[in-house]
Amino acid sequence: MASVSETHPANKPSPARWLVVAVPYLWLLLFFVAPFLIIFKISLSETAIAMPPYTPLFDGFGAIGDFVSELDFDNYLFLTDDPLYIEAYLSSLRIAVISTFLLLLIGYPMALAMARAPTMLRPTLVMLVILPFWTSFLIRVYAWIGILKPDGLLTLLFQSVGLFGADDQVQIFRTDYAVFIGIVYSYLPFMVLPLYSALEKMDNTLLEAASDLGCPPWKAFWKITFPLSLPGVIAGSMICFIPITGEFVIPDLLGGADTLMIGKTLWTEFFGNRDWPLASAVAVILLIMLVVPIMIFQNQQKKVA
């Protein structure tokens, strides 16, 4: 009935109510936003040999004036100079786009099948999709190593059915193919669930109406079902695409030496070469690349909420 207004007594500012907002707000400002500012600052500083491996950040607030003059784009210039980094970014994007597409291709039919399943069965199906998600990411990637290794179970399977000779081995492990398998496997629940929730909400009488008006089922799918599930498609794609672009564990464990992904590069710069400023610059550029997808994702979430 009546819309709840700002003067609703429960919405009136009181100390207790301000605390509700202030505590999580300050926490996120301090531990989520502030780190980004720092990463940005450090990406503009020079590598120092001393520990910590960058010139100190807070040498007094008097230094703020010097700050601008000290801005040092060397790290960024270095990134653009070395084709390795550019290739790593492009390769990350390529892998993320292809994986997202594969996820849609596999996830959509699954979500549709779940949404069309008998109502009694649906909660069980949803649980079956969620269950692997509760299992450790690392464990699930690890499980594939045993399967894809040259002397692993897939080779064994092919040999035992006579497809392979005794000396043939599956040459997937440590290639991009293994990375795709690992990504699709790990992210499938993230794709299926938003798609399912969009499809499940859909009014079934719409398809009956389309059919009643003479539209054959396959056409009804493209004209009715698919357009109405687009919010789910966008949500699912963004939820997968963004983290895949920065993925580290999967390319590291399943990919080969030539599998270029920026998450891996960042990790190596940081833990291997201990070049913190460069790692920060890598992160900043990755973040800039992902700003648009993240905005799309947020808008989608706000519409849902």
């Binding site: 996120l28 989520f32 450090i42 983290p243 672009t245 920065g246 998450g263 990790w267 994702f297």
Partner: peptide, 19 residues
């Protein structure tokens, strides 16, 4: 700030937090 961490690549969150 609530939605971004859900999709933020972990390497970025981890690195920034460390710094």
């Amino acid at each position: 700030m609530i939605y971004a961490p859900l999709v933020m690549p972990e390497v970025i969150t981890g690195l920034s937090m460390l710094l």
